[in-house]
Amino acid sequence: MQLIPIALAQPEMVLAREVVRPDNPSGPPICGRGMALSAPLIARLRQMGIKSLIVDGHPVMVEGEESLEIMLDALEHRFSKVTGDPLMDFLKGTFRSILCRSMGEEAP
């Protein structure tokens, strides 16, 4: 899942969250999660004043953003004081696969 500015939206990206009207956020959504973007749809969303979208996977590499490898190193560092504790090792594994999925990759 990635939050991207609408300027970086491309056809075939898939919405991970429904999109609501900025002027009526509690109203019915404009499009639901799971919907694939198309060029006309992106144009229409822009017209409605939508500034950002949450899409599946991690389709856009933003400059300055950390790579999966760096993120996994940081995860090891965060858990470094509790290694060997079975529940904590389990938790680390869970967060490792969440991180991998969020970057659009399978867990190693």
Binding site: L75, R78, S80, V82, L91, F95, I98
Partner: peptide, 14 residues
């Protein structure tokens, strides 16, 4: 564990 925000140190407590 999710590394959201910063609470003073990065280390996950047991």
């Amino acid at each position: 564990a999710a590394a959201f925000g910063f609470s003073g140190d990065p280390f996950v407590p047991r």
